[in-house]
Structure formats: structure tokens, C-alpha cells
Computed example of a mutant assay.
Amino acid sequence: MEIFDIIDENGNPTGKTVTREKAHTDGIPHRTAHIWIIRKKDGRVQVLLQKRSMNKDSFPGKFDTSSAGHIQAGDEPQESAIRELHEELGIQASPDQLEFAGTFPISFEKEFHGKMFRDEEIAFVYIYDQPVDISKLVLQKEEVEAVEWFDFEETCEECRKNRDKFCVPSGGFEVVKKYLERQNQQIKE
């Protein structure tokens, strides 16, 4: 059974915990780690997205963030990010290979598989820009059906229009855009 820290509006643990099921049945605030795998190709930024397994409790079969998962009670966001990358994609990242980009809130209520799913979370976003050969990834089949590289800007627009194919949270795109803008600014300086 997965246990999460209940968080305050700033994403800080309150000292109380909740089960995954209760968190999503009642919409109790908790934390997640989102890892965006990015690369530059032909002068454009690309993002690796995962296609969610059809048995997922939310957004089955849709393309989502490179890797993401709940932060277990007592864990820190970065250690969760490292664990999720390894579990879902087989990538063994070190702490210095993950760059913290920021946080954003996720809040929605939607029916999946005949029951309501309520999500209230703060996502901690990390960037992984090391070389990735997708043919060598070890996908966690219960979670991930496939992975594919997408153009970042085109996908950002596509996600706004086509929610049938994508379920990437728009807040994640905004955090990554700001990260990329900071990177470009540092290069110019």
C-alpha cells in the first residue's frame, strides 16, 4: 500500500499521511516528482514522452511526462525522481544529473474505469538532459507502454488542443519553458 505525506498549500509535508487510494478518492493534497527528459536536435528542443499503460488508474494509453510518480511518505522529491526514472525507464541517474526546474499545482476531477479520480498535488519538476537511446530503455510494462521523442514547442501546442492523445500537464510545460529560457539567458551572458 502506498502512503503519501499530506501537504500544505506550499507543498510542505504537514506531518500527516494518507493512502494513495484515499488521496485520489477524496482529493487530498500530496506531492509528485516529474522528470522531463529533453535533448536538442537540429536546433530544436525535443522531449521524451511515455505512453501510459492501458491499466493505469488515470489517463490510460495517453502520452505523458517522460517519467513521473508519487513521492512516498518520508521521501524527498529528488530521491523519488531518481527512483521513478530507474523503475519506469531503466535510467540510473545520479543526483547531479537531475536539475530542479520548479513546481506547479495539479488539480482535477475526472472519471476513469467507472470511478471518480480526484487529484490535488504539487509536482516537483526535474530536467534530465543526458543522452538517451530509447532502444536501450527498460520500460516498466505495468506503467509504460512505449516512449517517443516529440518536438517540445509543437507538443506544447498539441497538448492544448488534443487531449485524446496527450495528458501532459500544461503546468509542466510552463515550468520547463521557464527553465529553457533561463538556460538560454545564461548562454547569452
Rank of each mutant, 00 (worst) to 15 (best):
M1Y: 04
E2H: 01
D5T: 00
I7R: 07
D8H: 03
N10R: 12
P13M: 05
P13Y: 08
T14C: 03
G15L: 08
K16S: 09
K16Y: 07
T17C: 01
E21Y: 10
E21H: 04
K22Y: 00
K22C: 00
A23W: 00
H30A: 04
T32K: 15
T32G: 10
I37K: 05
D42T: 08
D42R: 13
Q46K: 15
V47P: 03
L49R: 11
R52H: 07
M54W: 10
K56V: 05
D57C: 07
D57R: 07
G61Q: 08
G61T: 09
G61E: 10
F63E: 02
D64W: 14
D64E: 15
S67D: 08
G69C: 12
I71W: 09
Q72V: 13
D75R: 12
P77C: 10
A81W: 07
A81E: 07
I82D: 04
L85Y: 01
E88M: 03
G90N: 03
P95S: 04
P95M: 06
P95E: 02
Q97C: 06
A101D: 07
G102M: 07
T103L: 00
T103C: 08
T103H: 01
F104I: 04
F104C: 06
S107V: 02
F117A: 00
E121F: 03
A123I: 01
F124P: 00
V125D: 10
V125G: 09
Y126V: 07
I127Y: 08
D133A: 07
D133N: 15
D133I: 02
I134M: 12
I134L: 13
S135P: 01
S135A: 14
L139W: 02
E142V: 02
E142Q: 12
E143L: 07
V144A: 03
V144M: 06
A146K: 13
A146V: 04
V147P: 04
W149V: 13
F150Y: 14
F150K: 11
F152H: 10
T155Y: 10
T155M: 14
C159N: 15
D164L: 14
F166Y: 15
E174T: 12
K178A: 12
L180M: 14
L180H: 03
L180K: 08
L180A: 08
L180N: 05
